[in-house]
Simulated scan of single mutants.
Amino acid sequence: MTGPAADLATLQDATDRLLASLDDLDDAGVAQPSRLPGWSRGHVLAHLARNADALVNVLRGRLMYPSEAARDADIERDAHRPADVHRADLRDSADRLAATAAALTDEQWRATVTLRNGVTDRATTIPFRRWVEIELHHIDLDIGRTVADLPGAFLDRALEYLTERFAGHPGVVPLELRAEDGRHWRTGRPEGEPQVITGTPAALVGWLSGRTSGSGLATGDSLPGLPAL
């Protein structure tokens, strides 16, 4: 199994892990703060559910969100629901996304789609983008999962994804990221001598994604700031 089918299967596994980790979360736990400033765990769960529906829109050729204000309002509206409602919504929205994706033809998978803020990409990237949302926000829920728990296959692809995302960014100093296994990536502004940062794939992804302050990384200078994802 390769291509979108393989990515969809991997995404389903990650979603199932997330849902299983929510089994013991009660209403009081949902209301507790997440690791994201200003968001409760309920906000994170509401975002994940509405993101799934937004990606359905993308795969059907519609706007991902009607507007940024509408996106934010939907998250705020849904954040304060009981834990059981969150679990059901997350499961149902994930099923809607999976069903929509499973119905796409090869031609539709090759099509260019429009994401948030006018970003365009191939439809084939949508399952991985959703996988990123699931893995990183699973950490943000602060229910025991950390970057050390991220699967190796995810870390490898996330490093490529995140370094590409920051490549050429005027607000990111030139960087050369080196994994302890010898792999390396260049990102940030193209001009200038890059700052070398070395660490495990988990430590690199944790820092690049804003999920850690850079613990476990080695560099000759202080770590530079990175824009939010």
Rank of each mutant, 00 (worst) to 15 (best):
T100S: 11
F128K: 12
H43Q: 04
G214N: 01
M64N: 07
R211V: 02
M1L: 11
G171D: 15
H47N: 12
N51S: 14
D221Y: 10
P37E: 01
A9E: 12
T120A: 09
D142T: 10
T2E: 15
R165D: 05
A153I: 08
D23T: 14
L217V: 02
L229Q: 10
M1R: 11
N51K: 03
L223W: 00
F154D: 04
H137W: 04
P174F: 08
V147A: 10
P4T: 13
R87I: 08
A6V: 06
P4L: 09
V113C: 09
L155Q: 03
L208H: 00
H137Y: 08
E68V: 13
L177F: 08
D72V: 07
R186V: 00
D121F: 00
A103C: 08
N117A: 15
L155N: 01
G144I: 12
A49T: 05
D78T: 00
Q12Y: 03
G199Y: 00
I197H: 04
N117V: 09
D16S: 03
D84V: 13
P190L: 05
L19Q: 02
D84P: 01
A101Q: 13
V119H: 03
V205H: 01
L8T: 15
R186T: 03
D92P: 00
R96D: 11
L208F: 06
Q32F: 04
L115H: 07
H169M: 07
T163K: 05
G216K: 05
R77F: 03
E180C: 10
P82K: 06
